Amino acid sequence: MTTTHPAPRPLDTAAGDGARSRLATARLYLCTDAREERGDLEDFLHAALAGGVDVVQLRDKGLDVARELELQETVARVATEHGALWAVNDRADVALLAGAPVVHMGQGDLPVPAVRSLLGAGPLLGRSTHSLAQAAAAEADPEVDYFCVGPLWATPTKPGRDAVGLDLLREVAASRPTTPWFAIGGVDPARLDQVLAAGAERIVVVRAITGSADPERAARELRERLPA
Score class of each variant (00 low, 15 high):
residue 216 E to H: 14
residue 33 D to M: 02
residue 36 E to V: 14
residue 142 P to A: 14
residue 50 A to S: 09
residue 88 V to P: 01
residue 25 T to A: 14
residue 94 V to I: 09
residue 228 A to I: 12
residue 25 T to W: 14
residue 94 V to K: 04
residue 198 A to F: 08
residue 30 L to Y: 00
residue 140 A to G: 09
residue 180 P to L: 03
residue 200 A to C: 13
residue 6 P to R: 05
residue 172 V to H: 01
residue 83 G to N: 04
residue 179 T to P: 02
residue 225 R to Y: 08
residue 26 A to N: 06
residue 174 A to C: 14
residue 217 R to G: 13
residue 134 Q to M: 11
residue 67 R to N: 05
residue 136 A to E: 11
residue 80 T to G: 12
residue 133 A to F: 07
residue 140 A to S: 11
residue 218 A to Q: 07
residue 198 A to D: 11
residue 93 D to P: 08
residue 1 M to W: 08
residue 54 D to V: 04
residue 31 C to Y: 00
residue 26 A to L: 08
residue 133 A to M: 03
residue 68 E to C: 10
residue 85 L to H: 00
residue 88 V to F: 02
residue 40 D to S: 06
residue 53 V to S: 00
residue 157 T to R: 07
residue 118 L to I: 13
residue 176 R to T: 08
residue 13 T to H: 14
residue 168 L to C: 11
residue 97 L to E: 03
residue 190 A to V: 13
residue 73 E to H: 15
residue 130 H to W: 13
residue 145 D to S: 03
residue 85 L to A: 00
residue 48 A to I: 00
residue 74 T to G: 04
residue 126 G to N: 02
residue 205 V to G: 02
residue 219 A to F: 01
residue 218 A to F: 05
residue 21 S to W: 15
residue 154 A to Y: 15
residue 5 H to K: 10
residue 47 A to L: 07
residue 195 V to Y: 10
residue 37 E to M: 10
residue 176 R to C: 06
residue 82 H to T: 10
residue 165 G to N: 05
residue 154 A to W: 15
residue 97 L to F: 06
residue 125 L to V: 12
residue 123 P to S: 06
residue 177 P to R: 09
residue 50 A to D: 05
residue 147 F to M: 09
residue 187 V to W: 05
residue 75 V to K: 00
residue 193 D to A: 15
residue 201 E to F: 14
residue 53 V to L: 01
residue 87 A to P: 01
residue 144 V to A: 04
residue 190 A to Y: 13
residue 54 D to A: 02
residue 17 D to Y: 15
residue 69 L to A: 07
residue 226 L to K: 05
residue 63 L to D: 01
residue 218 A to L: 08
residue 148 C to W: 02
residue 32 T to P: 01
residue 116 R to E: 10
residue 95 A to V: 07
residue 80 T to S: 14
residue 161 R to A: 15
residue 139 E to R: 01
residue 222 L to P: 02
residue 41 L to S: 06
residue 48 A to L: 02
residue 140 A to N: 09
residue 144 V to H: 03
residue 170 R to H: 09
residue 221 E to G: 08
residue 81 E to M: 04
